[in-house]
Design a protein around this nucleic acid. Structure first.
Lengths: 161, 161
DNA sequence: CTCCAATTGTTGGATGTCAAACAAAACACC
DNA sequence: GGTGTTTTGTTTGACATCCAACAATTGGAG
């Protein structure tokens, strides 16, 4: 018996919303976006399995690897998190021995964040699983369709990003 | 025009993620989906303004209107919420006088949920604002592109829905 | 140099979500 | 008809996220 949270993919809801009428909701972009994101999140968690990783924490690891030594505020901005939200997330990664906060010498307010060897090693494994997850996501789409989807998503309220 | 279209919310982050490299993240569908959904959520909240309504609560009102008298479990399924998550949400709507729980006579475990007159009236106003919000969302898309977007979203992991 | 302003990481409070456990009620079935 | 099972709404505990406020530190204006 592992003590992992065992986020067992929801009962599948038979089909859709159980027969109730949804009114105008299926006419809203945000409704479909939320469903798709939820499905992706569940599949991501399942793909990570016993490695116990969320999309958000994985994103943090990727950003840290690409920007070693960056400070918490920069990491928070890159990961689209509040400075304060970063703290417990980073605590978790640090407690798992994946990242290190090292105090800066020239500015003692700043923590430089970097991956540990264990973090680098785990990230390598995670990337393989993420690649398989991503492949499964788009298995019903052609390459062109996938590209179209991303392009259309980026054209929704682009001024907010 | 001194009145700006109240787009406050997030600091806008200059452009994207503040200069940090994002590694493979922009190659992931979930990454773009999350950004788009976040932007939509912010715009939704701004569009509701002083009417103080979230996408989730709005969805609940719409579903209740379309299925008057449905019970909490059915509402939870339709809104894709856990039974227990529905309780505080419904408490909030009830405290605002928008919905009513009325105990069933034939099954005393069941609460039948319905809109109050105030709920119906508010929902009417909300729908107008949601329509404007939706229009703004797709203002950079043609009707065909919007349709393509929804169709592609529905083809991501369709077996999860 | 001194003092006020800005930045950095953190804490505390609020909210929204899930899962597990629970009491009350209804149902099944022998 | 009594007893065990299922369903319903709720409570509790665990997270993740936001915002506001804070202490420590740095930087800037005079």
């Amino acid at each position: 018996m592992s003590e992992t949270p065992r986020r067992k993919a929801r009962p599948l809801a038979a089909s859709a919303a159980g027969g109730a009428k949804l009114g105008l909701l299926p006419g809203l972009l945000g409704y479909h976006l939320r469903l798709a994101q939820r499905a992706i999140f569940d599949d991501f968690a399942a793909a990570m399995g016993e490695l116990d990783m969320s999309p958000g924490l994985f994103g943090m690891l990727v950003i840290i690897e690409a920007n070693p030594g960056l400070k918490q505020t920069e990491l928070a901005n890159a990961a689209r998190l509040d400075r304060s939200s970063l703290v417990p997330a980073l605590d978790k990664l640090e407690a798992r021995g994946l990242v290190a906060r090292r105090a800066s010498v020239e500015d003692r307010r700043v923590n430089g964040i970097s991956l540990t060897a264990a973090g680098t090693a785990l990230l390598k494994r995670l990337k393989q699983r993420v690649a398989r997850h991503e492949k499964r996501l788009v298995s019903n789409l052609t390459a062109a369709e996938r590209e179209t989807l991303v392009a259309l998503l980026q054209r929704i309220l682009p001024e907010h990003r």
